[in-house]
Design a binder for these strands. Sequence first.
DNA 1: GCGTCCAGGTCTACC
DNA 2: GGTAGACCTGGACGC
Length: 321
Amino acid sequence: MRIRDLSFSTAFNLKAVAPYDFSLTVHKPAGWSLLTPFEILESDTLWTAIRTPSGKIFGLKLRSLGTVKKPEISCDVHSLKKLSMNERKELSNTITWMLNLEEDIRQFYALAERDPLVKVLLKDLYGMRITKRSDIFPRLILAVTLQMAPIRRSDQMMNLLINEYGEKIGFNGREILYWPPPERIAKADVKELEERCKLGYRAKNLKGIAESVSKGFPAIQELERMSAEEAKAKLIELKGIGEYSADIVSPHLGFALDVWSAKIFNVLLFGERPESPRDIIPKLKKVAEERWGKWRGYVFIYVLNDLDNLSRKYNLDLTEL
DNA sequence: GCGTCCAGGTCTACC
DNA sequence: GGTAGACCTGGACGC
C-alpha cells in the first residue's frame, strides 16, 4: 500500500464545554477507536486521520491541554497541500463537531438526581462525550460487518477491508491506516471482496452501498439536518441497511439495540436474561424512551462502556452475555 | 481431527 | 402485515 506523505501542517487550539474528559472521549473504555482502528494513542496524545465530506484525507494529532473542568484541546492538522484560511476554518468546525465540544451534557447528568443507574454512570465516566464522524462510509461498513457475526469476526472483516482497500498516511513520524474510500469498494469485484475481506454474503450489499455513497447519498451533516425519522428512512433505502444498522449510522442518537446489548439492558433493567433477546428489543426501546427521553443514546453508550463497573456494582456478569 | 452449531440482522417468498 | 428460512464464515464445543 502506497503511503501518502502529509507534509504540511497547521495548528490551533479548541475549547470545550465542561465537563469534558478528553481521554475517555477519544478512547472509550470498551476499546472503540475515535476514527480508525489503526490510530495511535500515547498518554494524552492521539494520532489519527479524518476524511471530510469532500473526500480529502487529513492527519490529526490531538492532545489535551486542559482538565475535565477546564477543557482545551490542541489540534495539529497535517495535509497534502498547504491549507487556505477557509479550509482551516472548515476543519476547525468539523473537529469541533466531531469531538462534540459544544454539547452541554449537564441535562443528562441532572437525570442522576432521580435515576440511580445514571448516577452510577456519571460517577464512573464523568465527562465522557459521544463523538461523531464526518464521513458516512466507515459507519456503514461497521453496521454491515456487525450483522450476523460475533465481534471478533466483525473486527476481522473491518481490518481486512482497511488493509486491502484502505489508505495509509504518514505524518509527524507516524503511519496511520484509514478506511477505504467508497469509490474504491464500488469499483471492486464482488467475488474479490468476498475472498480478500471474508465478507461472505455482505460483499454484494457493501458494494451496492459504496455505489450509492459515491453517487451522492446524503452526507452525515445532511442526515443530521433531517428529522430523526427522515434520516432513518433514507438510510433504510440502502439494501443491507435495516432498522438496527440505520440506528448505528444515523447522526441522530438512538437506542441501537442488537441481540447482545438487548441481553445487557434486560439484565440491568429487569434482572434476568431474556428468553428471546430479539423479541424483547421493541419493549426495551420503549422503556428507554420513557425513562431517559432524548438522553437515552447517552445512557446506551455509557452503559456499554461501563460493563465492568456495573457488573461489580450490581453483582451481575454483564461482560459474558 | 472432524462435524455441528450459531452469532452484536436483513431480505424475500409465502401465507 | 406477519413470519419462517436462507445467508458467509470461523470459533466454540462435543465427540
